[in-house]
Deep mutational scan, measured.
Amino acid sequence: GLTEEQKQEIREAFDLFDTDGSGTIDAKELKVAMRALGFEPKKEEIKKMISEIDKDGSGTIDFEEFLTMMTA
């Protein structure tokens, strides 16, 4: 499992990506986040990433899903 410290770091990354503070990361926010990390993702790639992570089919990534992605 994760230490509380690791969870906190992932939470901070999540909050950075969640620019509108909605508690979820949408495609637009993910794209901005990827760019910040030096990637140039295409729209299809973003969609694919979200569909792989987005277990509940909401079209957005919540913290639990993000946590799973970061620790996979």
Results as ranks from 00 to 15, higher is better:
Gly1Met: 10
Gly1Cys: 14
Leu2Cys: 11
Leu2Gln: 03
Leu2His: 05
Leu2Thr: 04
Thr3Pro: 03
Thr3Lys: 04
Thr3Glu: 02
Glu4Pro: 13
Glu4Phe: 10
Glu5Met: 11
Glu5Asn: 08
Glu5Pro: 05
Gln6Ile: 07
Lys7Asn: 04
Lys7Thr: 08
Lys7Glu: 05
Lys7Ser: 04
Gln8Tyr: 11
Gln8Leu: 08
Gln8Arg: 11
Gln8Gly: 05
Gln8Glu: 05
Glu9Lys: 15
Ile10Ser: 02
Ile10Lys: 01
Arg11Cys: 05
Arg11Met: 03
Arg11Asn: 01
Arg11Val: 01
Arg11Trp: 06
Arg11Gln: 04
Glu12Cys: 15
Glu12Asp: 10
Glu12Met: 15
Ala13Pro: 00
Ala13Asn: 02
Ala13Val: 14
Ala13Glu: 02
Phe14Cys: 02
Phe14Ala: 00
Asp15Cys: 13
Asp15Tyr: 10
Asp15Met: 14
Asp15Ile: 11
Leu16Asp: 02
Leu16Ala: 07
Leu16Thr: 06
Leu16Cys: 13
Leu16Ser: 05
Phe17Pro: 01
Phe17Ser: 08
Asp18Glu: 01
Asp18Tyr: 03
Thr19Phe: 12
Thr19Glu: 06
Thr19Pro: 05
Asp20Met: 05
Asp20Glu: 04
Gly21His: 13
Gly21Asp: 05
Gly21Met: 05
Gly21Lys: 13
Ser22Pro: 01
Ser22Trp: 03
Ser22Phe: 03
Gly23Asn: 03
Gly23Glu: 02
Thr24Glu: 06
Thr24Leu: 05
Thr24Cys: 09
Thr24Met: 05
Ile25Arg: 00
Ile25Asp: 00
Asp26His: 06
Ala27Ile: 15
Ala27Met: 12
Ala27Phe: 12
Ala27Asp: 04
Lys28Arg: 10
Lys28Tyr: 10
Glu29Ile: 11
Leu30Phe: 08
Leu30Met: 06
Leu30Asp: 00
Leu30Asn: 00
Lys31Pro: 09
Lys31Asp: 13
Lys31His: 13
Val32Thr: 13
Val32Pro: 08
Ala33Gln: 01
Ala33His: 02
Met34Pro: 00
Met34Val: 03
Met34Glu: 01
Met34Arg: 00
Met34Thr: 01
Arg35Lys: 11
Arg35Phe: 05
Arg35Trp: 07
Ala36Glu: 04
Ala36Ser: 09
Ala36His: 12
Leu37Gln: 02
Leu37Lys: 02
Leu37Arg: 04
Leu37Glu: 01
Leu37Met: 10
Gly38Lys: 02
Gly38Thr: 02
Gly38Ser: 02
Glu40Tyr: 15
Glu40Gln: 11
Glu40Phe: 13
Glu40Ala: 11
Glu40Ser: 13
Glu40Ile: 12
Pro41Met: 15
Pro41Arg: 07
Pro41His: 13
Pro41Gln: 05
Lys42Glu: 14
Lys42Pro: 07
Lys42Arg: 10
Lys43Gly: 14
Lys43Leu: 14
Glu44Ile: 06
Glu44Asp: 08
Glu44Gly: 13
Glu45Thr: 11
Glu45Met: 13
Glu45Gly: 05
Ile46Val: 07
Ile46Phe: 11
Ile46Asp: 03
Lys47Tyr: 10
Lys47His: 10
Lys47Asn: 10
Lys47Met: 14
Lys48Ile: 09
Lys48Met: 08
Lys48Pro: 03
Lys48Cys: 15
Met49Pro: 02
Met49Cys: 12
Ile50Glu: 03
Ile50Met: 13
Ile50Asp: 02
Ile50Cys: 06
Ser51Arg: 06
Ser51Ile: 06
Ser51Lys: 08
Ser51His: 08
Ser51Thr: 08
Glu52Thr: 09
Glu52Gln: 12
Ile53His: 12
Ile53Val: 11
Ile53Asn: 07
Ile53Ser: 06
Ile53Phe: 15
Asp54Ile: 11
Asp54Val: 12
Lys55Phe: 06
Lys55Ser: 08
Asp56Tyr: 09
Asp56Gly: 06
Gly57Asp: 07
Gly57Ser: 04
Ser58Pro: 03
Ser58His: 06
Ser58Asn: 12
Ser58Gln: 06
Ser58Val: 06
Ser58Ile: 04
Ser58Met: 06
Gly59Ser: 07
Gly59Glu: 05
Gly59Phe: 08
Thr60Asn: 06
Thr60Leu: 08
Ile61Tyr: 04
Ile61Leu: 07
Ile61Asn: 00
Asp62Trp: 04
Asp62Gly: 08
Asp62Thr: 15
Phe63Arg: 01
Phe63Thr: 01
Phe63Asp: 00
Phe63Trp: 08
Glu64Arg: 07
Glu64Phe: 10
Glu64Cys: 10
Glu64Gln: 10
Glu64Val: 06
Glu64Leu: 10
Glu64Met: 07
Glu65Pro: 01
Glu65Leu: 12
Glu65Arg: 14
Glu65Lys: 13
Phe66His: 00
Phe66Gln: 00
Phe66Glu: 00
Phe66Tyr: 02
Phe66Leu: 03
Leu67Ala: 03
Leu67Val: 07
Leu67Lys: 02
Leu67Cys: 04
Thr68Ala: 13
Thr68Asn: 11
Thr68Ser: 10
Met69Cys: 12
Met69Ala: 07
Met70Phe: 13
Met70Arg: 01
Met70Glu: 00
Thr71Ser: 10
Thr71Ile: 12
Thr71Cys: 13
Thr71Phe: 11
Thr71Gly: 07
Ala72Lys: 13
Ala72Pro: 07
